[in-house]
Design a protein around this nucleic acid. Structure first.
Lengths: 199, 199, 199, 199
DNA sequence: CATGAATGAGGGTTCATTCAT
DNA sequence: TATGAATGAACCCTCATTCAT
């Protein structure tokens, strides 16, 4: 499918340009120039600038989604904590490997539009729901202390976002995703306090 | 000083418009119309659109800064945990009372410009430094478990940002800031796990 | 008359600003700032920017006019050539002493407006008439070769304009106006050719 | 090259509008309207208003330059006086045929800008150099009376400018350029005085 | 008389999108 | 399909001038 390849070529250029300049400052001229096609050709593949951005964003959200699996119980599955660890590792790895997409998600896609905002909100609400679900599961299993599950879920979401941004911008040197994830998990599980037994 | 009042009037209009439309979609026309002044009058008080936004942002960052005090040790001061609680409460309260400014900070000011980005980054780095400082202090006092202080600081920052956004957008009903803060503190201190003694 | 002095003060500032920036680029703000008065005060002394410029120009043309006297015949007057020499000297001296006014006349006042153009044209026509009159007088007196008096008058006018510009801009070093005038007169009278008797 | 034609079409409109209104009063709207194109189309061919004017001016100066050839000595060339006559004729003819360009040169381009001024000055200096060169050549050949060659060159330049303006504005009816040129040459060579032999 | 504040008209430029080939 | 050329809507900003004190 040559058409699909052309389209992908535009998406790649757009990824670079949007991540560097943001949505508003990125011009169609920038993108087509980088893609090496003519201005009008662009509109054969995307209805307009908005649509292009939306495609990019949808791809990005799917990729993120694809990397996280709902935690399942049962003897045939690994322990929940291990499943959680795998999920987190995949997300941090994604941020390491696709810094431009992360930039787009957390910079360019923010504050764009009422409609985009809704779409992002829907996505994040889903994420928060999953986080909250996991917390509730822990409570049911007697592993987690009962409490404000929603509030905790939002806090965890925020923490994850920030970590992704910092990893993508290399302010957290992501030599190994594993170390980052272990520390995060430990923080989330036990907080910062010294254990009473340790005191 | 009537001049200061006029200026404030423009700032107020700008606050509303920027928080609703974002920087790029907000036009000078919108702002002056809301302020009830003529187009050219605007330029008597602000050099240009960018400058106006910057003023708003600087005010906002100062306000935020003003609400957080560095934790101090010594008998004449309240216990560190209480000082922390006060700081958090002030920030959450700010998010409740000034949702528009929070929207501007977390939506409009994001992904605007290399220069703005740098200014925001500087601010957040300062915040992260303070958080990390507090964590290190806890370690020194033998209250906090040693660990990846920087990573934890980023995570806490992210969590706080998200809470502010959700409070400002009323998705976390902020009936009482106190409850939110207590739960946050508890989560940060002890994590989600049941205490060994509780298990 | 304090009013007249205020007015003059504005005119002086305007002279400097107009000569430096030209009419269009000179702003009222520039002029009042230099004059040390408030914006609105300006309009107490001049109806508008155009009027101010016109005043300046009229003064300038009068000054120029004042320096040139019509050549008169008769025993009680100096020889025509001497009268001419005096006129020329006065004009060149004026260019030396008032370079800003010359700049205004030949730069700022040019290409401004249909109406200004007409006013300048009228002035120059009068000058050309006088030059042509002098030439015709010379013919009548048997001193000057008959010929295209109008064409010659225009050429002389152009020559004089250029000399004024160059003197004012110091490209012709005007150590002594007398030397310049003598050379000019000689050129106008005998041209560049060697006299037959000299050949 | 259709692009070149479009560009020329804009230049033609600009020539008319600039010559009628001057640089500052001419608006892009005027020009595109006359050219029958859309506002934005203009910017496909010229970076901005200034650039358009500069293009026009450069073309004009080149045209003028193209019409004047440096006087060459030697048996294979016509006598210097004839070469001079040809040059003058070409210039006067140009003024007759392109009155709008002459208006632009002597009205619109005057007092525009420090940068334009420098460009014009450079051009005129070159012209003056050539005139002075011709005069010096005459001196070397024993045809021209030694004297203030620079001063004379400026005067001649001024005379030529004025003649061009008057011819372009039809105040000197240019029925035949030849007559004008002959009279000019005669004036420049012999001045206005009756030859001693004629007296 | 003097002024600081206010204004509306207007201009240049950009840019996403469409047309014609 | 691919494209170069064209477009109109929109926006920021300036400035001479007037108002209210």
């Amino acid at each position: 499918m040559v058409r699909a390849r052309r389209r992908q070529q535009v998406l790649d250029s757009a990824k670079e340009v949007f991540s560097r300049k943001g949505f508003h400052k990125a011009s169609i001229a920038d993108i087509v120039q980088k893609a090496g096609i003519a201005r009008a050709t662009f509109y054969l593949y995307f209805k307009n600038k908005r649509h292009l951005f939306q495609s990019l964003l949808e791809f990005l959200l799917q990729e993120l989604d694809r990397r996280v699996e709902t935690i399942k119980l049962g003897g045939e599955h690994p322990p929940p904590l291990d499943q959680l660890r795998v999920n987190l590792t995949r997300v941090v790895t994604f941020a390491m490997e696709e810094p431009q997409l992360v930039q787009i998600l957390f910079r360019s896609a923010v504050g764009m539009d009422r409609e985009f905002e809704r779409e992002l909100d829907r996505f994040y609400e889903r994420v928060v729901d999953r986080i909250e679900g996991a917390v509730k599961l822990g409570i049911d299993l007697g592993l987690v202390r009962p409490g404000s599950t929603r509030l905790i879920a939002y806090t965890v979401l925020g923490g994850m976002k920030e970590i992704m941004v910092q990893v993508a911008s290399r302010r957290i040197s992501p030599l190994n995703a594993k170390g980052v994830v272990d520390d995060l998990l430990e923080f989330g599980r036990r907080g910062v306090l010294l254990e009473p037994t340790e005191r």
